[in-house]
């Protein structure tokens, strides 16, 4: 469904991604992990054409994304942003329904969809009238997920969406994603190994722009393919042990 074929991307004189090839099957959620500067976010941005590759091809459903208008392509892809990125001057309801609005849905249909999503995200539908500034950090992040899901996209991209929320809220948010797995094909970027293992059908490890290993959570823990993966797994285990959660 999502297919990156030998994609290279340089930013300035720094190689952000080198010859990356990766496939996400229909209905699969692939977790993408790695340290800072490993190329995780760059990978996501190549899928919805926020960035263009220097070489290589990105395909969705077998079709080269460059054949499609960027704006039109992005309306078919749900994107949950790092740091949420809600529009501060628009109500929560309009934030959630913005992609539907851009797609030209009827107003009543958008309103119904907004209520449905807010309820699904365990938010009071009355909040639709509020401005994002009136919400807590966890509530804002749920609105961000609701906005990404609103236009019923077949493809979802998550860019470290829960990095800045407290652990209990984070747990509930992860649960919301878990419940929806299978209804979309997705890439989930995180630097948190525990989150990757919980949500990913498979986990891909990036290190300094190069793909180290793609494997199921069990296999990744059992047989780390490179030193970089081993180090990442060790650090993740140590953290999990300290806080008493995770694998």
């Amino acid at each position: 469904m999502i297919e990156l074929d030998a994609v290279t991307k340089t930013r300035g004189d720094h190689v952000a991604l080198r010859e990356l090839s990766l496939e996400v099957a229909e209905g699969e959620l692939l977790a993408l992990v790695g340290g800072s500067g490993s190329g995780k976010t760059t990978t996501l941005e190549l899928v919805n054409r926020l960035l263009e590759p220097d070489s290589g091809v990105v395909r969705l459903g077998g079709r080269d994304v460059r054949e499609r208008e960027p704006a039109e392509l992005r309306r078919t892809i749900g994107y949950v942003f790092q740091g949420v990125g809600l529009f501060p001057h628009l109500s929560v309801g309009r934030n959630v329904g913005i992609t539907c609005e851009l797609l030209g849905w009827e107003r009543s249909r958008i309103e119904a969809r907004v209520v449905e999503l807010l309820e699904a995200m365990a938010l009071d539908p009355e909040l639709a009238k509020a401005l994002p500034t009136a919400l807590s950090g966890g509530q804002r992040q749920r609105v961000g997920v609701a906005r990404a899901l609103a236009a019923e996209p077949a493809v979802m991209l998550f860019d470290e969406p829960f990095g800045a929320v407290d652990p209990p809220t984070r747990d509930r948010l992860q649960q919301l994603i878990e419940e929806r797995k299978g209804s979309f094909t997705g890439l989930f970027v995180t630097h948190d190994l525990a989150e990757a293992l919980r949500l990913g059908d498979r986990v891909a490890v990036l290190h300094e722009g190069e793909l180290q290993q793609v494997a199921t959570p069990d296999e990744l823990l059992a047989n780390p393919a490179t030193d970089a993966v081993r180090a990442f797994v060790e650090v993740g285990r140590a953290a999990a042990a300290r806080f008493g959660s995770g694998p």
Partner: peptide
Amino acid sequence: RVVRAARGVGM
């Protein structure tokens, strides 16, 4: 970040 979100939602 808001500008990026605007592009990301398909404007």
